[in-house]
Design a protein around this nucleic acid. Structure first.
Length: 784
DNA sequence: AGCAAGATGCTTTTT
DNA sequence: GCATCTTGCT
């Protein structure tokens, strides 16, 4: 293949991103801008021009992304490239260099539940009470600290006075110790240990830098500090890092991702070239307008303007329903209508902020006879039968793995009860031995009397199985299932709903596939893959049904028709984000991600009443709805079962469609009433002038008007709104760009008058020309 | 060992 | 309000 062939059908900015050879490169890839295409082309282009495939490494977050990329690159016929997720690459490196970082290369990778088990143990062994130091409290603290590359000492360091922090650090140290004993690492360790290794072992880093000469890092906006350090340390010599991502789609801050990594890329990598991909191939201009207008309220971002050649499509709708049930029915009915008109169900998706909202939707779709699937986080590998089987395999691979061993001692039930297991564990701890050694010495342990014989049998069985550990994977797993009695158990407990036998068979075939496809199909490597693969990777688009999923799960996907439900204050944005401006921005990005998944038709909805934990409560409209460009949107309101199109009333979010007498009184009493002019309700809210981004860090145009993002102090439309009645804070200045519902964007030429009489003269593009508006009517609004 | 009644807790969840 | 885990009982 000729390199030029890779460029033929690319746009100018895409080409620039693909052909940039040496030195740091940041590709700001807007939603739907053909990012994957650019990355894969770039990988191939580099391999054909400035280097060879084996010196190119593309790193992604999900297996799904990695697989897709691998496939596309394979089409170029350039074998030998590294395409991996951060975690799988790190696991590979840690196995390779295990000895140098204090691990054995057969280490186990612990998932959430395994890790929780060890944390629980660490709490107990630290002499603390589990109900006070619950997993839910300890785990996130440690995980976050690890992702920020802290050590326990550094973690306490800042807050020596803080008893809580000191205790967490103590538990953490214990936890690390227990993990080392078990020859196990968790997901966070994979990253952290590699990052540390690259710093502390210059000779290893040197080798790796010579291997991975060109780095491509995808979804860079979702990297945490550990991942950033890995990337940075891998390109220290050559600085050949290409990061792609979109700050507006950073939605994993709560997991330790740092949006700063992408915002400050140019500081971290001086002389970086920046390419913006702003042409969108996915959505209609209307959808993009809505998305852009919303995200403009964020401060922590990089300026970017999405545009498209696509045709207009139907208007974006916002629908306010009486309650959650009728919202779900509305969605179901709309989908039924679409289906009747020829839309395929697989082209339709429903997004919600939290999983608990799916239930009403499921009911409504079922009642409406509409086929659907829920993309749940319930993973294949978390099923009991899979975990049981995998635990046996883990023990065979890593005899130090006490957590897995404890899990299988009595699975299937063989008369070794919890008391005996506890005694064994106590003995092991007291004598500083592994659990497996305690098992072998069971006869000598006090209080294990009757179970001792059964333990002996179990150990014998394990030794037998270990003899089979070298067999091909399929055979090995089948032997395990047979010898342990698991197979019989699964056969007996399988139901139509939950076919355990079939699930285990799926595991076997994935092992067989691994055996064929992997370069090094060892048991340890298979287990690695099992730990690092989730079935989020397997959201099928082929099934002929509607997909219900969370906004997080929706990232990276696209659907012709999208419904977003629950646009309510406390749901989206989530209540717990409400008093933190940074979290509010993340919620807004989440909303943005949802909107930009839609290709042709987008409907956002909200219920005026919703059942939260059992009781019906009136909701408040999401502040994000009020940040949408009103003139772009068709508003519908349900009243007594009828849907009417009309303008919403801002500042009002109660259970009634329109203000009640009581509400109106309350409103004027508080002094935030607005005139009854219907146009006035369209005016954007919350303009302030003192709200620029922090000290021009990223060199933004200071002149640009920024919208207040907060609304954090109160859930009602509040005072800042209604300075508008008083005059000067309509937020419109001479020279500023404003939009008008009919005439579009224009520039303010002059402002005359004051207060009620203030009017602006606005210059629009021909043929409209210059027009004058009374500001009090709010017909022109600041554009962004 | 197995079940049933209580207790708990409840955003999102790439790996 | 509900599902999931724990505890206590037989």
């Amino acid at each position: 293949m000729q390199p030029d062939e890779l460029l033929r059908d690319l746009t100018e900015p895409q080409r620039a991103a693909v052909t940039h050879a040496d030195g740091p490169l940041l590709v700001l890839a807007g939603a739907g801008s053909g990012k994957t295409r650019v990355i894969t082309r770039r990988a191939a282009y580099l391999a054909l021009t400035v280097t060879r495939p084996r010196h190119v490494a593309a790193i992604t977050f999900t297996n799904k992304a990695a697989n897709e990329m691998r496939q596309r690159i394979a089409a170029f016929g350039l074998p030998g490239m590294t395409v991996a997720t951060f975690h799988s690459l790190c696991a590979r490196l840690l196995r390779q260099y295990a000895g140098q970082v204090g691990l054995k290369s057969n280490f186990s990778i612990y998932d959430e539940s395994d890790r929780n088990e060890v944390v629980r143990r660490a709490v107990v062994e630290s002499g603390l009470a589990l109900d006070q130091w619950s997993v839910g409290r300890v785990v996130p603290a440690i995980s976050l600290a690890k992702n920020h590359m802290l050590t326990p000492a550094e973690y306490t360091g800042k807050e020596v006075q803080d008893f809580g922090a000191r205790t967490i650090a103590r538990i953490w140290e214990k936890y690390d110790e227990l993990m080392r004993e078990r020859n196990a690492v968790d997901f966070d360790d994979l990253l952290r240990l590699v990052a540390r290794m690259l710093e502390e072992k210059p000779e290893i880093r040197d080798d790796l830098e010579d291997t991975y000469r060109y780095l491509l890092i995808d979804e860079y906006q979702d990297t945490n500090l550990a991942q950033f350090e890995i990337a940075r340390r891998l390109c220290r010599k050559r600085q050949n890092i290409c990061a792609t991502g979109d700050p507006d789609q950073s939605i994993y801050g709560w997991r330790g991702a740092t949006i700063r990594n992408i915002l400050e890329f140019e500081q971290h990598f001086p002389n970086a070239k920046v390419v913006k991909l702003e042409q969108n191939y996915r959505s209609t201009p209307r959808i993009l307008a809505v998305a852009s207008h919303l995200i403009a309220s964020n401060k922590r971002r990089k300026e970017k303007t999405l545009w498209t050649h696509n045709d207009d499509g139907p208007p974006v709708r916002v629908v306010e329903c009486e309650d959650a049930d009728s919202e779900a029915e509305f969605v179901a009915r709309s989908i039924a209508d679409l289906a009747a008109a020829g839309t395929a169900l697989r082209d339709v998706a429903i997004f919600c902020r939290i999983n608990s909202l799916t239930r009403v939707l499921e009911t409504a779709l079922r009642n409406g006879g509409i086929a659907y699937q829920v993309a749940r986080g319930v993973e294949f590998y978390n099923r009991k039968e899979i975990k049981d089987t995998v635990s046996y395999l883990r023990v065979l691979a890593n005899l130090d793995d006490d957590v897995s061993l404890a899990r299988i001692i009595n699975t299937p039930a063989r008369g070794i009860g919890p008391t005996s297991i506890e005694r064994l564990a106590d003995y092991a701890r007291a004598h500083n031995k592994r659990l497996i050694d305690a098992l072998r010495e069971a006869d000598r342990i006090e209080g294990v009397g009757r179970a001792a014989a059964k333990i002996r049998q179990f150990v014998k069985m394990l030794d037998e199985l270990r003899g089979a550990a070298g067999k091909p994977l399929r055979e090995l797993i089948e032997t395990v299932l047979d010898v342990t009695g698991l197979e019989d158990e699964f056969r007996q407990t399988s139901t139509d709903d939950n076919n355990r036998v079939a699930n285990v068979e799926e595991l076997i075939s994935s092992a067989a596939r691994f055996q064929e496809e992997s370069d090094e199909p060892t048991l340890v490597n298979f287990l690695s893959q099992v730990s690092l693969v989730s079935d989020q990777d397997a959201i099928k688009s082929e099934s002929g049904c509607v997909t219900i999923m969370t906004l997080h799960a929706a990232k990276g996907l696209e659907f012709p028709v999208v419904f977003m439900v629950g646009l309510e204050d406390g749901v989206l944005p989530h209540a717990r984000a409400r008093d933190d401006p940074n979290q509010m921005e993340e919620e807004r990005r989440l909303c943005f991600v949802g909107i930009t998944r839609a290709m042709r038709q987008l409907t956002m909805s909200r219920a005026r009443r919703r059942q939260i934990r059992g009781t019906w409560i009136p909701t408040v409209r999401s502040p994000f709805l009020m940040e949408l460009p009103l003139q772009e949107i068709e508003w519908q309101s349900e009243q007594e079962g009828q849907f009417r199109t009309g303008r919403p009333i801002f500042g009002y979010g109660g259970a009634e469609p329109f203000p009640t007498e009581q509400w109106a009184q309350q409103r004027s009493r508080r002094g935030w009433d607005r005139r009854a002019d219907p146009d006035a309700e369209e005016r954007p809210r919350h303009w302030t002038d003192d709200d620029d981004p922090p000290a021009g860090r990223h060199g933004r145009q200071a002149s640009r008007e920024r919208r207040e993002t907060g609304r954090a102090k109160s859930s009602h439309a509040e005072s800042s709104t209604d300075k508008a009645g008083g005059g000067s804070s309509h937020g419109i200045k001479v020279g500023q760009l404003v939009t008008h519902g009919r005439y579009g964007v224009g520039r303010v030429a002059s402002i005359d008058g004051w207060g009620e009489d203030a009017k602006a003269s606005v210059e629009f593009k021909p043929p409209t020309g210059r027009r004058t508006f009374f500001l009090k009517f709010g017909t022109i609004r600041p554009a962004r």
